[in-house]
Amino acid sequence: MASICMLLLLLLFLFCTSDVCSSVVSSSTDAVLIVVDHSGKGDYKTIQAAINAVNSNNSELVYISIKPGIYREKIVIPADKPFITLSGTAGTNTTITWNDGGDIFDSPTVSVMASDFVARYLTIQNEYGTKGKGIALRVSADRAAFYGCRILSYQDTLLDDYGRHYYYNCYIEGATDFICGNAASLFESCQLNSLAKNLGTITAQHRNSPSENTGFIFLGGKITGIDGGTVLGRPWGSFSRVIYARTYMSNAISPYGWHDWDDPSKERTVYYGEYMCYGPGANRSKRVRWSRELSRDESAPFLNKTIIGGRSWLRPIPTHFKTHVK
């Protein structure tokens, strides 16, 4: 009997660490509601205090509603607290900001370490400026989604570290490698704004092997910025993979489009593609020869949520709430 019980416990553990368990939890329309208001009219005055109040090894949806205002905090969502949503009311009136630089893993204003995380209608900002690396958002977890968020810094703005991620209708701003990491991420209908005056780089994707199913996919959306000073990407990893599809490219994009980071050997192994992009920056007549103009068939695997397995874990906004008990 004891051995049967142990087997059942093992199966339950395996089930609840899989996408299946994520799908079961995320399909729920009920969530625990926690209200953050810096004026003192909510459950907590700070966002981190609300996150700290979530039980370790959490297994239910927690919806943290953040009232408008500027929250000067450095926030961590720890790995043992999955299924948390942070939601403002509009990306322009609910801001999380900090001022830190240096190490890319220590400087982020917001660090997401827990799976099944959602952020809605927030500005996430690092005010470190042009002095060096200052990460606004670090995402080091699987199954994370961001809707209507503004992510702002200068260098390494978004450390899209690892896991499967979805960004929808977000505004991401920076100058140097401002989307970097080795996640498998779909950026749909997002605006990328370059602050670079000379050589700027939007992406530094870190795929190290052709067997890794990672890469940055930009579907729809637009690229804006100062004329002629920015490339679409450069390879942090030897097998860096970035695709832009149906994206408007302004004159911010340099005619040659991509950079090899002064390592010509990577030109043979990177996968940099464009498909049906348009605008003055999308002219491929002077593109580097090692980038690709994708055909319809070549682009097809990247034009949906398959690369992130989104159908199994992207979840709707909860419709029923229960009160958080302190």
Rank of each mutant, 00 (worst) to 15 (best):
M1V: 13
F13I: 12
F15A: 09
F15Y: 14
C21D: 08
V24P: 08
S28V: 08
L33R: 11
H38W: 09
Y44S: 00
T46D: 02
I47L: 01
I47P: 08
A49M: 08
I51D: 04
V54M: 03
V54Q: 02
S56A: 12
N57I: 12
N58K: 04
S65C: 02
K67D: 15
K67Y: 08
I70G: 01
K74E: 14
A79V: 13
P82E: 02
G91P: 05
G91C: 02
N99Y: 09
D100V: 14
G101P: 08
G102R: 01
I104F: 07
D116T: 13
I124W: 02
G129A: 06
G129M: 07
T130F: 07
K131I: 11
G132R: 06
G134L: 08
I135G: 00
L137D: 04
L137K: 02
A141V: 14
A141Q: 03
D142M: 05
F146N: 14
I151H: 01
Q155Y: 15
D160N: 15
Y162F: 15
G174N: 05
D177F: 13
N182Q: 12
N182D: 15
L192W: 06
N193W: 08
S194K: 00
T201F: 06
T203P: 01
T203G: 00
Q205W: 04
Q205Y: 03
R207G: 03
N208L: 07
S211Q: 14
S211F: 13
E212W: 12
G215E: 04
F216W: 08
K222L: 02
T224C: 01
G229T: 05
L232Y: 04
R234N: 09
I243F: 06
Y256P: 02
D260T: 12
W261A: 14
D262F: 05
R268Q: 13
Y275H: 14
Y278K: 06
R287F: 06
R289N: 10
S291L: 06
S295I: 12
P301G: 07
F302N: 01
F302M: 02
L303E: 06
K305S: 12
I308T: 04
G309E: 05
W313L: 04
P318A: 09
